[in-house]
């Protein structure tokens, strides 16, 4: 039985992640945008990188079996929820703390 190699998927993952990291570096080293927009765009690029890694790198290894594929997806979504709680919770609590320390 001939297995799929997924070479195209890995190659696109490599090209896209190298491209986006170069783009982010270029934006910052040339100060191409005002600061607020610069922060937003590198954050957006980091999220795009996450999507690129999941689609082109992680998926080929995980979708070999329909059953566990669904479970992998569930675990991934759960992880994202936990990370969102950690990030938003930390920012919220630190902002609040800062507010009460100053006032």
């Amino acid at each position: 039985m001939k297995q799929k190699t997924h070479f195209g998927s890995y190659l696109s993952g490599f090209i896209l992640s190298a491209l986006f990291v170069t783009l982010a570096y270029g934006l910052v080293s040339h100060h191409a945008l005002p600061n607020a927009r610069l922060y937003l765009s590198i954050a957006a690029l980091a999220i795009v990188q996450l999507i690129v890694h999941v689609l082109f790198y992680f998926r080929p290894a995980l979708k070999s079996n329909a059953d566990t594929d669904r479970w992998s997806m569930l675990v991934f979504v759960l992880t994202l929820i936990i990370i969102t709680i950690v990030i938003s919770g930390s920012l919220w609590i630190m902002y609040n703390l800062n507010y009460y320390m100053v006032n």
Partner: peptide, 23 residues
């Protein structure tokens, strides 16, 4: 999978530590 994951983590570190540090 492990090395692909490390590349993702490094990109996040690069963005949050080095890029924001240079702005």
């Amino acid at each position: 999978l492990f090395w692909q994951f490390l590349s993702l983590v490094w990109i996040l570190i690069f963005t949050l530590v080095y890029l924001t540090g240079a702005i």
